[in-house]
């Protein structure tokens, strides 16, 4: 194996700034997409446990549709196909004038895709809280909405803190797909450094270390959160 080591490359201008820039994109994509996924996934999860069969069906259909098509294909559909299906004006706007098209599309695609996974977590959390709690809430006269707000959701979210965290980490890792539509995030940046300098080993090592560090930091934060929100006797769901 012949290779010219040069670890200094990582700290040299401009490459170090490329890495910083890449990490910024990665984190921004991940956080924005997670907000979408969390909100939409919660609504879908509630729908899937609803007493209304139509709402349940919509939730189920969404999950099946989004989790059975590869994320990369979904990304391409949003990026290349979706603007063509819009009315002419809107389509042109999306293609020509929409700010940061690659970034926006990635956030949207990643958020909608992950919502289907989050929906399942929220659903399993609500189901873990159980029919008994639902009945107890109803029995004192709480409406369905209030049963969710005061009883099912506060317990369900506590139960699924760990799965919600791993979903965030999944988004964080999946944000690397953005490089396929021209958003040079962290993985894309290291690939770019490799192409410019031929120091692939150093570049990929840098990305690897950064991804691992962020992952372990987030895990640590999650454990802290779990402790802070701990209620005596509460069981956490298995991952």
């Amino acid at each position: 194996m012949q290779y010219n080591w040069d670890w200094g490359i990582l700290f040299r201008d401009p490459y170090i700034w490329w890495l910083v820039d890449g990490l910024q994109w990665t984190l921004t994509i991940a956080i924005c997409a997670w907000v979408i996924a969390f909100c939409l996934g919660s609504i879908l999860g509630i729908m899937r446990t609803s007493i209304n069969p139509y709402l349940r069906f919509i939730g189920t259909a969404y999950v099946e549709l989004f989790r059975n098509v590869p994320l990369l294909v979904q990304l391409f559909l949003w990026y290349f196909v979706f603007p063509e299906l819009l009315p002419e004006e809107a389509g042109r706007w999306v293609k020509r004038e929409m700010p940061m098209p690659g970034f926006t599309t990635t956030v949207l695609a990643l958020g909608l895709y992950t919502a289907s996974r989050l929906c399942e977590q929220v659903r399993s959390g609500i189901e873990a809280v159980g029919i008994g709690q639902r009945n107890a809430g109803r029995a004192i006269g709480l409406s369905e909405t209030k049963v969710y707000i005061h009883i099912l959701l506060p317990n369900a979210y506590r139960i699924i803190i760990a799965p919600l965290t791993s979903e965030f980490l999944t988004i964080f890792k999946n944000s690397s797909l953005a490089l396929t539509i021209g958003v040079i995030e962290l993985t894309g940046m290291t690939r770019q450094i490799e192409e410019y300098t031929f120091q692939g080993f150093e570049a990929f090592t840098a990305a690897t270390v950064i991804y691992s560090l962020v992952t372990f930091t987030v895990m640590g934060f999650m454990l802290h959160l779990e402790k802070r929100l701990y209620v005596p006797g509460m069981i956490a769901a298995e991952k």
């Binding site: 008994g132 709690q133 107890a136 506060p154 209620v231």
Partner: peptide, 10 residues
């Protein structure tokens, strides 16, 4: 009143 109490744990 239920068999398993069903107090709200949180």
């Amino acid at each position: 009143v239920f068999q398993n109490f069903e107090l709200f744990p949180h």
